[in-house]
C-alpha cells in the first residue's frame, strides 16, 4: 500500500466521475433530471471504443462518444421537455435504451485493442516533489483536461451571462421566459451537454482509465454513483470534482487493503480469505449512501437544495414555477 499510488489512481478514476457528474449538474441546473447517465456512459464507452478501433484514432473516438451520449440524451429531452413526461421514468428508460444499444452494437468488441488516449508527463510541474508524481506525471491527457474543466465549469455557471440564464431557467423558468430566454432551448441545450459529458466519461473508461470493452461491467454502476455525487456536491462543479477524486482515492485505498498480510500488526482477514473481498466491492456503494445521507443533512441545515424547478415541466402560460 503506497499513498502516492492511491492518490495517483484516485485522480484517474475520479476523472470519470468528474465528467459525468458535472454533465449531470449542467442538466439539473436547467431543471432536467436525467437518470440515464449510466446508459449514456455505457453507449459512450462503446462508441468511443469501437470508433477508435475503426479509425485508429482515439481522439476521433472521444468525439464520437460525446456525440453518441449527446444524441441519446436528446431522446430524454424530447420526451420530458415537449411531451412533459415524468423525468424519473424517462431517465430510467434512457438507461435501458443506452445499455441495450451499447450491448447490441458492441457485440464482439471484447478483447480488442484500439489506440488509447496518450499518457503524458507535464514538463517542469512533474518535477515538484510528491505533488509532481501524484498530480502531473503518467496521467492520461484526460485527467489534465479534468483539472482545467472543473473550475471552468464553475466559472461558467456562476460568473457568466449564459450561466446565469442556465440557473434562472432551473430556478424560475417563468421569470426567465419573461426576460426573453428560451426555456425549452436552454433545457435542450444543457440536456445535450450533459449527455456529451456522460459520453466523454464513458470513453474515459474505455479509452483511458481501464481500456477495453467488458459490456455492462465497463461502467459497473459508476453512472449511478455520479448521479448521487451531484446531490452530495450540491450542484457545484468544484465540489463534484473534489467528490469524484475523493471517491476514486477511497476506492483505490479499499482495494489495496487486500494486499498486505499484516494490518496494524494483526493478520489481515482480507489477505487470509479473499472472499472477504466481496465486502470491499460493496464499499463504493456503501460510501455513496453515506455521502448522500451526509450531503442531504447538510443541505437541509443550510437550506441549500436542488434547483427549484428540477423535474418540473414548464408549460408557458400555466400557473406554476
Amino acid at each position: 500500500m503506497n499513498i502516492e499510488i492511491i492518490l495517483h489512481a484516485g485522480l484517474a478514476t475520479g476523472t470519470i466521475l468528474l465528467f459525468a457528474a458535472i454533465g449531470e449538474i449542467f442538466a439539473e441546473r436547467s431543471g432536467i433530471l436525467n437518470l440515464g447517465v449510466e446508459g449514456m456512459m455505457l453507449l459512450g464507452a462503446m462508441a468511443g471504443f469501437s470508433t477508435s478501433l475503426a479509425t485508429g484514432n482515439a481522439w476521433v473516438g472521444l468525439i464520437v462518444a460525446m456525440l453518441a451520449g449527446g444524441i441519446l440524451s436528446l431522446a430524454h429531452g424530447l420526451v420530458t421537455i415537449h411531451f412533459q413526461a415524468d423525468q424519473v421514468v424517462s431517465g430510467l428508460s434512457l438507461t435501458f435504451l443506452g445499455t441495450g444499444l451499447a450491448l447490441v452494437l458492441g457485440e464482439g468488441l471484447t478483447g480488442q485493442h484500439p489506440p488509447t488516449i496518450p499518457i503524458v508527463d507535464i514538463p517542469l510541474l512533474s518535477q515538484i516533489p510528491f505533488l509532481g508524481p501524484v498530480l502531473f506525471s503518467e496521467h492520461s491527457l484526460l485527467v489534465y483536461v479534468g483539472y482545467i474543466f472543473a473550475p471552468m465549469a464553475a466559472y461558467y455557471v456562476y460568473k457568466t451571462r449564459p450561466g446565469m440564464h442556465l440557473r434562472a431557467v432551473g430556478e424560475k423558468p417563468s421569470a426567465a421566459d419573461t426576460l426573453g430566454i428560451s426555456v425549452y432551448g436552454v433545457r435542450y441545450f444543457y440536456t445535450f451537454v450533459g449527455g456529451m459529458l456522460a459520453g466523454l466519461a464513458g470513453a474515459t473508461i474505455s479509452l483511458s482509465v481501464s481500456p477495453g470493452w467488458y459490456s455492462t461491467q465497463t461502467t459497473s454502476g459508476q453512472g449511478w454513483i455520479a448521479v448521487g455525487l451531484v446531490i452530495f456536491a450540491q450542484w457545484n462543479p468544484i465540489r463534484a470534482a473534489f467528490g469524484g477524486y475523493l471517491f476514486g482515492m477511497l476506492r483505490r485505498f479499499i482495494l489495496d487493503l487486500q494486499g498486505p498480510a499484516l494490518l496494524f500488526g494483526f493478520a489481515n482477514p482480507l489477505y487470509v480469505n479473499s472472499n472477504y473481498g466481496f465486502f470491499l466491492q460493496m464499499m463504493p456503494f456503501v460510501l455513496t449512501i453515506i455521502a448522500l445521507v451526509w450531503g442531504s443533512r447538510a443541505a437541509t441545515k443550510k437550506r441549500l437544495g436542488a434547483p427549484a424547478a428540477l423535474g418540473v415541466p414548464y408549460i408557458r402560460g400555466e400557473r406554476g414555477l
Binding site: G39, A75, V79, V89, S90, L92, S93, L94, T95, F96, L97, G98, T99, G100, L101, L103, V104
Partner: peptide, 9 residues
C-alpha cells in the same frame, strides 16, 4: 434489453 428500453420510452 434494447427492446425493453424502447418499449418504456
Amino acid at each position: 434489453n434494447l427492446l425493453q428500453g424502447i418499449i418504456l420510452f
